[in-house]
C-alpha cells in the first residue's frame, strides 16, 4: 500500500512540476479574449473610437480600459455582442444608433480632389483627380472618415436605403 501511495505521490509531484514549468515557459503572451473581441469589431480601422485601429481598441477593451460602447459605426449590435463576450451588463439606451449608414457624394459640389478616397479604409471611394468621385455601396462601412476630409462638404452619411431584399416584417404589436 505504501508503494502505491509513494508512486502516486511521485507521479503527482513530477507531473505537477512539469505543468508548472510549461505554464511559465510556454505561456501565451496575448490575452486570448483580445482576438475574439477584435473579430467582433467592424475591422474598418476608422479610428472613431480614439484608438489607432480595431486591434488597439480590442486590446483596450480586454484590459478593461475602454467601454463596450466605444464603436460608433458598430452601434447597439456590436456593443451588445462585446458586452456578452466580456460578461458585463451595459445600459444601451444611451448609445446613438441610427442603423447602418452609407456615405454619398453630392456630385454638383465634388471637385475631384481625391482626399476622401485616400482616407477610406475599405477603398470604397472611386474617382480620379478632377473627376467626380463615387461611393461603392457594397464596400462602404459608413464610418464617416471621409466626411471630415472633404474640403467642399460634398460628402454626407445617409441611412442605408431599405429595399425589397432588406425589408423585414415588423414585430407584432404587444398584446
Amino acid at each position: 500500500m505504501l508503494s502505491a501511495v509513494g508512486t502516486l505521490t511521485t507521479m503527482g509531484l513530477v507531473l505537477g512540476g512539469l505543468l508548472g514549468t510549461a505554464a511559465r515557459y510556454l505561456a501565451v503572451e496575448e490575452n486570448p479574449i483580445e482576438a475574439e473581441l477584435q473579430s467582433l469589431l467592424p475591422g474598418s480601422q476608422c479610428g472613431q473610437c480614439g484608438y489607432v485601429g480595431c486591434a488597439q481598441a480590442a486590446a483596450a477593451l480586454a484590459r478593461g480600459e475602454a467601454l463596450v460602447t466605444l464603436c460608433p459605426p458598430g452601434g447597439k449590435a456590436i456593443a451588445e455582442a462585446l458586452a456578452a463576450k466580456l460578461g458585463i451588463k451595459v445600459d444601451l439606451s444611451a448609445v446613438a444608433d441610427d442603423g447602418p449608414r452609407l456615405a454619398v457624394v453630392a456630385e454638383e459640389i465634388c471637385t475631384g480632389c481625391c482626399r476622401c478616397s485616400k482616407v477610406c479604409s475599405t477603398d470604397a471611394i472611386v474617382g480620379a483627380a478632377k473627376q467626380i468621385h463615387n461611393v461603392i455601396r457594397e464596400a462602404c462601412t459608413g464610418c464617416g472618415a471621409c466626411i471630415e476630409r472633404c474640403p467642399t462638404e460634398a460628402m454626407s452619411l445617409v441611412p442605408l436605403p431599405v429595399t425589397l431584399q432588406h425589408w423585414i416584417w415588423p414585430m407584432p404589436a404587444n398584446v
Binding site: P42, G43, A77, P100, S121, A139, I168, P172
Partner: peptide, 26 residues
C-alpha cells in the same frame, strides 16, 4: 413573429458578411 425573427436573423447575417468583407477590404 416568425417572419420578423427570420428577417432579423437574415439582417444580422448580412451585417456579419458585410463586416467580414470590410475587414478583407481593409
Amino acid at each position: 413573429y416568425f417572419s420578423h425573427a427570420k428577417g432579423e436573423l437574415a439582417a444580422r447575417e448580412r451585417t456579419r458578411l458585410r463586416s467580414e468583407a470590410a475587414k478583407r477590404l481593409a
